[in-house]
Computed example of a mutant assay.
Amino acid sequence: MAAAEQHYILPRPEFDKPVKILIVVAPYYKDIADNLVAGAKAEIEAVGGTWDVAEVPGALEVPTAISIAERLSNYDGYVALGCVIRGETTHYETVCNDSSRAIQMMGLNGICIGNGILTVENRKQAEVRAEVEGQNKGGGAAAAALHLIALSRKWGSSSKGIGFKPITDSIRLAGDTEDTPTA
C-alpha cells in the first residue's frame, strides 16, 4: 500500500471556553472503531476539550444519534465515526451515501460535525486509515469538528437556546392590548 501523500494540516484551534464534544461511533468493526475513537479523543484532549462516546449499531444510525443529541443535549460539536467496507451488494453505496448525505445536511444547518466514517474497499485500507500513528482519520474528524466549533464561536453568539429569541424582553399574548399586563 502506498504511503499517504503529504498535505497541509491546519494548526489546532484555541478556545477560551471549554469544548464539549460527542463522539458517535458505529463499532461494527470493533478494532477499527476503537482506533478511530482513540484518535478522536486524543485530538479533543489536545485542545483541553472533553468528550462523551455514544455507540450505535451501524453507520446509518450515526446521523440520527447526532440529530437527537443536538436537539436534546448541550454539545458544542460532534464526531461521526465508523467503517463501511465494500461487500458484494449495493448496500455499501446506500450506507455510504445516506450517512454522508445526512451528516452533510446537518452541517449545512449549522451543526459542527467532523465526519470520520471510513468508506473503503477492504479491511487493510480501513486499518491503515484508522491507525492513530498512521493516517489517524479519527483524529482528523475530531480536528474538523473543532475547527468548525472555533468558526461558530467566532461568527456566532455563545447562546444555544431552544426556540426563537424575542425582539424584546416583554411577552405579549395573542389578544392582549397595550393596557393588558404581560407575563
Rank of each mutant, 00 (worst) to 15 (best):
V37D: 01
G82P: 02
Q6M: 12
L148R: 09
G161Q: 08
G82N: 03
E14P: 00
I44V: 11
N74M: 12
G49K: 06
A183K: 15
A141N: 08
V62Y: 00
V79R: 07
L10S: 15
T64S: 06
N35K: 13
R123P: 00
I9C: 04
K160D: 13
R86A: 10
G110N: 09
K124Y: 03
G107E: 10
G77W: 00
R172W: 11
R12A: 14
A174N: 15
L36Q: 04
A54H: 14
Q125R: 08
V128W: 05
M106N: 06
L22G: 02
M105N: 08
A102C: 09
T89P: 08
R86M: 11
H147M: 13
W51T: 09
R123T: 06
H91T: 07
V62S: 00
D98G: 02
E93S: 10
L148C: 07
I21T: 00
K20V: 08
E14V: 12
I167D: 07
D16P: 05
V56Y: 01
G138K: 05
A150Q: 04
L108I: 10
K17Y: 10
D34E: 15
G39I: 07
A33S: 13
L10P: 09
N97E: 14
H147S: 11
S152D: 15
L173T: 13
E131H: 14
A150M: 03
I66V: 03
N109L: 11
E121H: 09
L36V: 01
I117E: 03
G39N: 10
G58H: 06
A130Y: 07
K124I: 03
R101W: 03
V47A: 06
I68T: 01
E5Q: 14
A174G: 11
L10V: 07
V128E: 10
D52G: 10
W155F: 14
I103K: 08
M106C: 07
A3T: 12
T50W: 01
T180Y: 09
Y75P: 00
K160S: 13
N115T: 05
K160I: 08
Y29T: 07
A38C: 11
I23L: 11
K165N: 13
G116H: 04
V56M: 05
N122L: 07
F15H: 12
V24S: 02
H7C: 08
L60C: 05
T180M: 15
P13H: 03
L108H: 12
E14Q: 15
A4F: 10
I162T: 14
T90E: 11
E131D: 15
G48V: 05
L72K: 15
K154A: 09
E55Y: 13
G114I: 05
D52W: 08
A102W: 00
Y29R: 09
G110S: 09
K154Q: 12
D16E: 15
A143D: 02
T90Q: 12
A65S: 05
E178Q: 12
T89G: 09
L81P: 01
T119V: 01
P11I: 11
P11E: 15
S100K: 14
